[in-house]
Computed example of a mutant assay.
Amino acid sequence: MNHKQLKYFLALADTLHFSRASERCFVSPPTLSRQIKQLEEEVGAPLFLRDNRTVELTQQGKAFVHYAQATLASWRQFKSECVDDDKPLTGELSLFCSVTATYSFIYDLFSKFRHLYPQVELNLITGDPAHSIAEVASGKEDVAVAVKPKHLPNGIEYLPIGRSRLVFIGPTMDCPLKSIIDEYSHSEMPWQRLSFIMPEQGVLKDRIDNFCKKHNFVPKVYAHVSGHEAMVALASLGFGIACVPEIVISQSPFKNQVQLLQLRSDEIEIGLVTKNKRLYDPVVKALWDTAKGLFTL
């Protein structure tokens, strides 16, 4: 087996979808399938159960995830120890963040980093920011953009890169929800009458739960949604109000279809996270130092 096959395996184990995994790995689905089959033949056991509709990890596959992650991490660490200081920095780095973060933070960071270290391969993976710290802690990704939690897990390094207010938003289109909002626009909102678009998990969900407890009501939840951008979309359609970072609104294609409600909530802090030991990798350390010089709070 080779390291490329291990990367293919981890991509498929994460997505459980051949088309999405092949897009992430920049190969065709048949090529990915062939490489996985070769890997299974070498391992001597099936790593996935698959049919025309679903892909699932076998028990052996679940165990192999840890082996593949540890092997690739050890390989990256070995490569970093072999770096020649007299030669340009080379290697690769993966960063996990939300779609909004790619516009508001990561574009500038990657632009600066590419200028300083053009031979480093950068891989960007987007997803729900509630998963950011877990993606790093599990070893799936090297660095992530995350909302700072109340307590950071052991072994996780954090670097602040920005702040954003939390704001409640509702629709601008005519609908029953907007009628209620307009009726109470100059007074306390009847929160118990409003439907909520809630995040599935993470710091933002904790903040909203605390807000509901403070105002002594149980929210009427229309939907639990993964990702801030999707929350804005549903709020713009009048399915419920949502509480999201203001920076998400400024970057959203639906910003003209939502209104900020009278109430303003507190701020969140946004930063980069990585494992402490990953900072011994020259590539990760270079990105970290670039971010330090670019973002000053």
Rank of each mutant, 00 (worst) to 15 (best):
P190N: 09
N123Y: 10
F110S: 04
K7V: 03
N52G: 06
H215G: 02
E141Q: 15
V244T: 03
R163P: 01
K213V: 12
Q5H: 11
K150A: 08
E92S: 12
V284M: 06
F26L: 10
D108V: 03
C175H: 06
C97E: 03
L32A: 00
I180F: 04
L287W: 02
D266Q: 13
E183I: 05
T296N: 11
L194C: 07
R53K: 09
G44P: 09
P171W: 09
F295T: 00
Q38F: 12
A11G: 03
H66S: 07
T290I: 08
M198Q: 06
G139I: 11
V136Y: 02
A70R: 14
C175R: 14
A134W: 07
D51T: 06
E157A: 15
G91W: 06
S33Y: 12
V27A: 01
V167G: 01
V83F: 14
I36N: 01
L260I: 13
L263G: 00
G127E: 06
A11C: 08
A134Y: 11
S22D: 04
F26R: 09
L6D: 01
G293L: 14
Q192C: 12
K277S: 08
W288I: 00
S111A: 14
G139W: 14
L234E: 03
D206G: 04
I156E: 01
E183K: 15
E269T: 10
S111M: 15
E267H: 10
Q262W: 07
R20C: 00
Q257E: 11
F211W: 09
K205F: 09
P30L: 14
E121R: 14
Y67D: 04
G162S: 14
S98R: 11
I241A: 01
F105L: 15
L10Y: 02
I169R: 05
